[in-house]
Design a protein around this nucleic acid. Structure first.
Lengths: 206, 206
DNA sequence: CTTTGTTTAGTACAAATGTACTAAAAACAA
DNA sequence: TTGTTTTTAGTACATTTGTACTAAACAAAG
């Protein structure tokens, strides 16, 4: 990949994060890089292409960070690690979160990919859950669809915590990411067995 | 309020909900109503004013519906009624939910009002919670900030369930609103005592 | 050196949008 | 009726934005 192309992506990401997607035009990016719009357009014929390229960067990043964090610590720990590292990745590309619905609406490619992604995540989630139940960390379902609903909630929380945070404060700091992953992860706590709770208190809340 | 003014608000709401805020210009609204843009501008000098007017309609609607639904049924029931009726009100003004962050970012007035609103809600939430605990429906906190975090999650879920839903399916139906209020309300379930659970199973999940 | 392909700058254009402004029409009051 | 205010239509404008197009500069290969 040429240097200019990399620079464009890097600068776009920075500006998108800082000012929001709709406040950054191609001219803004070009100006900031001291290159012409024509040049920028040579590398990305359409504005969409920049956004899509960034999306797939993000996906890649999340994938590798999940693999890493799921091997560290115990069964319960790795479950929480995944949430946290996902949130951290999203944080680096936070403009996606802040204009999530807009992007999904306008970018066919991203929408299609994201839908598939959720399916995979759901599968992974239920695999982990089954494992946790089998090992006595998590209680069985009491209500029908109880864990399915939990997954839906976790999904919403992962996708929109940043939007919510941005309402309360102008900028999102890295520290807030950690706070929110705590908040989200705590969704699991009341479903834990005694054994699970002990584990939780020992490792997570510290 | 003049008839034209009402019509503008009504038609704007309809179009915003159907096509999304950014796909509806003043001309769109005027055309659809068979009036001139000049006329529309006589009633609303700025585009913002339409959106703000709709926002305060919504707030009013939520307020009255909360009062109504909180008197029906028992203590636990009324708690869930509030969630459901809030979601239903939001559903009628769903364009807000779909472009929530954008609107909050751009509309100083709305942002300020919304921040205050959240504070009031939090107060109400904790009042209800205390009541539920005192009456033995809800267990005490085990973790520090456990219920504060629960509130944060509920807040995010209420504000962004529609955004999430819109990713999965093009249109949001009224039936989906009821499904999602179920999903959201179920957040409370694992915190209930035995007494609370019995009550929950008797009345809510049916 | 010449040729060929890549990269860059510059210009121009079409479309959309919010909004300001003017004047006509309608409604209303005296 | 006459005068005044409210309501409506029409036009025009400034701005922004994505993008198409052309040609120059540059790099690399033969």
């Amino acid at each position: 990949m040429s240097n200019t192309k990399e620079n464009i992506l890097e600068q776009s990401l920075k500006l998108f994060n800082e000012r929001g997607l709709s406040n950054v035009s191609l001219r803004t990016v070009a100006d900031e890089l001291n290159i012409s719009v024509g040049n920028l357009q040579y590398h990305f014929k359409k504005r969409e292409h920049i956004i899509e390229a960034l999306y797939f960067q993000l996906v890649k990043k999340i994938d590798t960070s999940i693999v890493k964090s799921s091997t560290l610590g115990g069964m319960l720990q790795s479950f929480f690690n995944i949430t946290q590292s996902t949130l951290l990745s999203f944080f680096e590309y936070r403009f996606f979160l802040l204009d999530f619905t807009l992007i999904i609406r306008q970018h066919e490619k991203i929408r299609a990919h994201y839908k598939e992604l959720i399916k995979v995540r759901e599968q992974q989630f239920f695999n982990s859950l089954t494992l946790l139940i089998e090992n006595g960390f998590l209680r069985e379902e009491i209500l029908p669809s109880e864990y399915k609903n939990l997954f839906i909630r976790l999904q919403i929380l992962s996708d929109f915590w940043a939007s919510s945070a941005s309402i309360h404060s102008e900028k999102i700091s890295k520290n807030m990411v950690l706070e929110y992953s705590q908040v989200i992860n705590q969704s699991i706590f009341p479903y834990l067995t005694e054994k699970g709770r002990i584990q939780y208190l020992k490792k997570i809340e510290s």
